[in-house]
């Protein structure tokens, strides 16, 4: 493994960027898919190609490219079994932000899920501290 770069090339910084890009493009894709759902009845519907009729999908494409490039920088320095679990943070950040900022309610099943993911992240992050010491 190469020595870990600092500053702009820092893989943890790229992990944060990648996660942000993914969160935004997933939102755009959902908007685009909803917008094009009515023309998806055709024979090739399962390919999802009709989604290309939506401007949202095209707006999402550069973000996908950015998320891919930043993710590759992450993979150069961090094991997949550590980087990937951490990259799933948006699954709890989105409902938490909706609760804090938009005042949306969170039911008990969701709270349980958020608690489980947080606990899991704490377990995954511990080896990270050790990994950083070694680098």
């Amino acid at each position: 493994m190469q020595s870990k770069p600092t500053g702009f090339a820092n893989p943890w910084f790229h992990l944060a960027l990648s996660v942000l890009f993914v969160a935004v493009y997933q939102l755009l894709l959902k908007l685009g898919a909803t917008e094009t759902a009515h023309i998806a009845g055709a024979r090739w519907a399962w390919t999802g190609l009709s989604g290309l009729a939506s401007l949202y999908v095209w707006l999402g494409l550069p973000l996908i490219l950015l998320s891919l490039v930043t993710w590759l920088q992450v993979l150069r320095f961090i094991p997949l079994s550590i980087a990937f679990p951490i990259s799933q943070v948006p699954h709890i950040l989105v409902p938490l932000c909706s609760w804090l900022i938009l005042g949306e309610s969170i039911n008990s099943l969701r709270w349980a899920g958020i608690a489980l993911v947080s606990l899991g992240l704490a377990l995954v992050a511990k080896p990270v501290a050790r990994l950083e010491e070694r680098l």
Binding site: P85, Q88, I92, G113, A115, S118, L123, P127
Partner: peptide
């Protein structure tokens, strides 16, 4: 520890 963390994250995302 990594396996346990991954299992908890998976289960949590499914619940959420």
């Amino acid at each position: 520890q990594l396996v346990a963390g991954s299992v908890l994250i998976s289960a949590g995302i499914v619940l959420v």
